[in-house]
Amino acid sequence: MIEFAIQYLPLYLQGALVGLGLTAAAMAGALVIGVLVAIGRLSSNPVLKYLTLAYVAVFRAVPPLVLLYIVYFGIPAWAMASESPALIALFSPLDNRFIAATLALAVNAGAYVAEIIRASILSLPADQMEAARSIGMTYPKAMRRIILPQAFRIAFPPLCSEFIIILKGTSLASVIGVTELMRNAQMIASSTFRNLDAYVLAALVYVVLVIVLQFITVKIEARMNRAMGIRSGR
């Protein structure tokens, strides 16, 4: 196991790097989607409210693996069949495995992130919005300057959990051939026939990655609290 690990670790680390890259890209997308959907959910405009509610309902329900197949296999094939140059051009980036995986994971995680951010906004005392409005801020400005910065601090721990969930979800991208950690483990397993070693090592790399991530996020959280004059953790 030890020599096996030493021999193949570079390939695993390479895969881990791809996985982290995919996670970061998907998380960035999920945050953009999440903020917009959360604001839509809290809007008094019924169209926005129900459209965003539908988004959350649908994309929390579709398993990420199914979404991955739809995005990578389904949509480009449908665009091709339509023979519309505009559609083909629009969806041609999905032929790229990495982009397809990023989109599928971001759309899925976006639904969860939206709920995290919505709950964080609702957890703020109502007088924060009132105070912002009372000094003459418009609703969008109050959101941007007063509400969202505070909501992000509250949302930070659950967003870190979401980041970890996405990281593990990147293993699904192996099925469309993204050469991330799981995909590399599969290739090593099939070329060495040492299935247990290959997959246990993959598991170990995931565990180490997640522990390191947790360590970093605890540090960031403590720093954010210090920046608000809160001394100990809460």
Binding site: P125, E130, A131, A132, I135, G136, T138, P149, Q150, A227
Partner: peptide, 24 residues
């Protein structure tokens, strides 16, 4: 509108029961 209302509120100061300072 949001904008008209905000313009009116600029001239009306309010002090809240629970202070409502911006903690960040």
């Amino acid at each position: 509108s949001d904008r008209e209302l905000s313009r009116m509120r600029q001239r009306i100061g309010m002090v809240f029961q629970r202070f409502a300072l911006f903690p960040h």
